[in-house]
Design a protein around this nucleic acid. Structure first.
Lengths: 317, 317
DNA sequence: CAAAGTTATGCAAAATTCGCATTGCTCCGT
DNA sequence: ACGGAGCAATGCGAATTTTGCATAACTTTG
């Protein structure tokens, strides 16, 4: 029996529609259907009567709802109480990361059960690339997690930092779609055609440099006309969905929207760039939990051919 | 988060030993270790302090124990209440099965999430082969689940029954082990050597016939001296573990004991026989839930080349 | 009456969990 | 003091579970 099934059930109890409830729970309708059935198998009684339209709860189901709500509440309260009880005894590890990585990468990464037991508490500052660098340099955080590329500006490599690769991603060019599912904009257009462009802020010069690399590989110059600028990838994505232009975004950020037909990748592989996800820390920093995390990451990074740079010769600006 | 993790934790809290707790929970120590770590990840706090020997609970762990006990109790109470609430509305399906199948096969089989939602209530009568046959014939149960073999006596095939294959097993010959792990008895011995034999009861003549088939394939007659008789496979197994003799037992019943070194298979493949697990019902019986189950089993049995016999011409004795 | 919406199922792929083998360590018995 | 036993964690491949896609069978809606 899983907590997720209880939460699934509360959703179907509220919506009385499997498809709607599934969407709310961010899983497909068939998977949702199976989960509810699995819950009913565990309970040993039907909770949902499917012979009506929409479905309704059985008498067992009606009994189940309030008790289920109470149990879910109690579970999370117990978890919070335990965290608070442990709070004084475990060290906080602090991170800075790009928004995208904070939203889409970090939660799954930090929750991996093979992670060392510590850290179990973490704090996250999100910002653009320069903010992450500044936080790390000035000691405001223990680790910074950013994108990186061997051909990118060696902003962090030149400083007293060391890094490990902990994942990979890909910058892809996407466009919103019309009612027929075709992209609103494309790059395979006559030379000089104006293409509305959703750009990263000037402070995200790092990504700007990478994007320039991609553009320079295209068969001819593009007339990209900046119509919006932000350092929030999520905001840029929503603008693209709204049909405002094209944007380079990390795949991790758009793969769901692409799968759901809200966005479409354009320009193919040539208009994309594989990038690394790297974790940085200042050379010399030592904390027990930080060391445990670093040691674990060093072992797993050996499989990902991570660079481990420790060159203190050049101080950062 | 899974209920199993809560139960795991209560076990480690009681024993303070991962290996012992794992054994009690019927999983391996590494799997147990990972589960506890997964629970701690979900909680977001260490519950076990591993720096002491034996381990002890952290302050969060001490807080967790009573609340965890209460939640597990509430979960099972909720399940029971729902079953009772549903009881009046769902039809009971009754089964008769051999002890072995009732213990080792039926719980996992009936709990398969792909099963139709009904039946969610079942009643089980366990007995030897003849008792199962009698229950089915006289209408005391809806279904009988037994072993079968094409070369076995066609006890049920001759009656107004139909059947489907729902699984397979193997009769294997096992012996207890000595302190060195070697079998106490073997069949590859000089002719005439007396071998203590743990036999099925006379009423389990069906299995006796199958076992005779196996024996007839051995390269020479064996001097099997019956020292114990029972229709309870589990009892025969315990007698073998205790070193009282050899016994043919279904693999499903002994595979764990063999893996744990309490028993050892002897005589190899030649001294074993693959058998089918079949479900029987009387031809013509109809109940909504029974039909749903049968329809589902018919579909899945198509992959297992199940025989479906429906010959009412010959009444059973 | 056709189209849309609904839930369930088959199937293959993806993800998770498992057990085995082993490591690195601590404890215990001699 | 030392060797063996016991302990918990980890790497790895296998086994199992869960998932999403495609689709079926059905009901509802326009």
């Amino acid at each position: 029996m899983e907590l997720a099934w209880f939460e699934d059930f509360l959703e179907i109890a509220a919506t009385r529609n499997f498809s709607t409830a599934a969407a709310s729970r961010n899983i497909s309708q068939p998977a949702f259907s199976r989960r509810i059935k699995a819950l009913e198998q565990w309970v040993g009684a039907e909770l949902i009567d499917r012979s009506t339209y929409p479905v309704h709860l059985t008498s067992a189901g009606n009994l189940f709802v309030p008790r289920c709500q109470e149990m879910v509440r109690d579970l999370y309260r117990l978890r919070t109480d335990c965290r608070n009880a442990a709070g004084a005894s475990s060290r906080l590890l602090t991170f800075a990361a790009l928004h995208t990585l904070a939203i889409y990468f970090f939660p799954k990464w930090i929750s991996h059960p093979e992670m060392p037991s510590a850290p179990v508490r973490s704090s996250m500052h999100t910002g653009d690339f320069l903010e992450c660098v500044e936080h790390l340099s000035s000691g405001k955080c223990d680790f910074a997690i950013t994108y990186d590329h061997p051909d990118g500006p060696p902003v962090l490599e030149g400083g007293p930092f060391e890094s490990l690769q902990i994942g990979r991603d890909r910058l892809v060019l996407v466009s919103g779609v019309g009612s027929t599912g075709a992209p609103l904009f494309d790059v395979d257009v006559p030379e000089g055609t104006r293409i509305p462009y959703l750009a990263y802020s000037w402070s995200d010069g790092y990504l700007g440099k990478l994007i320039s690399l991609i553009q320079s590989r295209w068969r001819r110059p593009l007339n990209l006309s900046i119509v919006y600028q932000s350092s929030l990838a999520e905001g840029l994505k929503q603008m693209a969905i709204a049909g405002q232009g094209v944007v380079w975004l990390p795949q991790i950020c758009v793969q769901k929207s692409v799968a759901q037909g809200e966005l479409v990748q354009i320009g193919g592989h040539q208009m994309s760039l594989e990038i690394e996800i790297r974790i940085f820390r200042r050379v010399g920093t030592r904390s027990r939990d930080g060391e445990a995390l670093w040691r674990y990451l060093s072992r797993t990074a050996e499989q990902a051919s991570g660079r481990n740079t420790a060159d203190p010769a050049l101080a950062m600006r």
